[in-house]
């Protein structure tokens, strides 16, 4: 095994990352994802929820003349926060431990493929699978929205899909950190669920508690909230859905007054940082090669 590891190090150090090999891993991960019943369960569940929300909740344009961001938009954003993050983080967390348990990771690493290629390929492959799932979900929702006189626009559909994918990449990257640091699928899945719970619920509940207990200043509230990728997504999504952050009380008004039109970009920037940082961390842990 140590020979295999040495060979990988040599290859990575000597020839750099080989994109041809990454593509091999990407295709492999895509195929495995598309065979994964959990992936399909999440995909179908998300598509059904998004479509029903679009059909049932978006008001008829004969009643509402202008359209805008309201509870339905907020519900769609919350749906992405709940389902997509859960889907992506659990996929990201399970993939490497399950390969480790089945022995296929050892087999792959015995081939002339470096750990960097394996990790990057896994990330890109999962990202591709999630893009397929999200594009299918929003695509179906978009088609269904045209069946009735609903006020959804094409640009909103595309922007929401893009942002949701970016959020899913964050969650995959976080999931990969869990995956490279846990040997068993069960442990990785439980850890992923806990992290999801922290990101989606406990973080916000903690902020609420701080506001109630210590009159947290609005700038601290905004900062604390937006550092959470799930909240950063919400900020960017509200802006993308033609909404205004100043609908969100004093902290929203502070954000608009201070950052103006850049507030959506701040959300996107935080999301990108949450892709890069966990992925780097996962790579640092994974390349040590102490997991086989």
């Amino acid at each position: 095994m140590s020979e295999v590891d040495t060979g990988v190090e040599e290859q990575v150090g000597g020839e750099g990352v080989e994109f041809r090999l990454i593509r091999v891993i990407v295709v492999k991960v895509l195929q495995e994802s598309l065979r994964d019943r959990w992936f399909w369960l999440y995909t179908i569940g998300f598509a059904a929820l998004a479509a029903s929300l679009t059909l049932v909740a978006i008001p008829d344009s004969s009643v509402v003349l202008s359209g805008g961001f309201g509870r339905t938009g907020a519900a769609l954003v919350a749906l992405v926060q709940l389902v997509v993050v859960l889907m992506a983080i659990s996929l990201g967390a399970r993939v490497l431990p399950s390969e480790r348990e089945s022995g296929s990771l050892a087999f792959v690493l015995s081939q002339p493929i470096g750990r960097t290629e394996v990790l990057l390929g896994t990330f890109v492959g999962l990202g591709g699978a999630l893009l397929a799932a999200l594009a299918a979900g929003f695509g179906v929702a978009g088609v269904l929205s045209t069946l009735r006189d609903a006020s959804v626009s094409a640009s909103v559909l595309i922007r929401l899909t893009g942002l949701s994918w970016l959020l899913s990449l964050c969650a995959v990257a976080i999931g990969l950190v869990i995956g490279v640091s846990q040997r068993k699928v069960g442990a990785a899945t439980s850890t992923a669920l806990f992290v999801w719970f922290v990101l989606v619920f406990l973080g916000d509940l903690g902020i609420m508690g701080s506001v109630l207990a210590s009159r947290l200043p609005v700038e601290s509230l905004f900062l604390a909230a937006v550092l959470n990728p799930v909240e950063a997504f919400r900020v960017a999504a509200i802006v993308a859905l033609d909404g205004s952050l100043d609908a969100l009380g004093p902290a929203g008004t502070y954000a608009v007054d201070t950052y103006g039109d850049r507030v959506g970009l701040i959300g996107v920037g935080v999301l990108v940082a949450w892709v890069v940082a966990p992925l780097t961390l996962a790579w640092l842990v994974f390349r040590r090669g102490a997991d086989l």
Binding site: A132, G139, A141
Partner: peptide, 22 residues
């Protein structure tokens, strides 16, 4: 009103992306 045609086109693009990945 948002054009149904553009919404359909955007939806078709999304579904094509999904299909291409598969």
């Amino acid at each position: 009103e948002p054009s149904r045609l553009t919404v359909l086109a955007a939806s078709a693009i999304l579904l094509l992306v999904a299909g291409a990945i598969v």
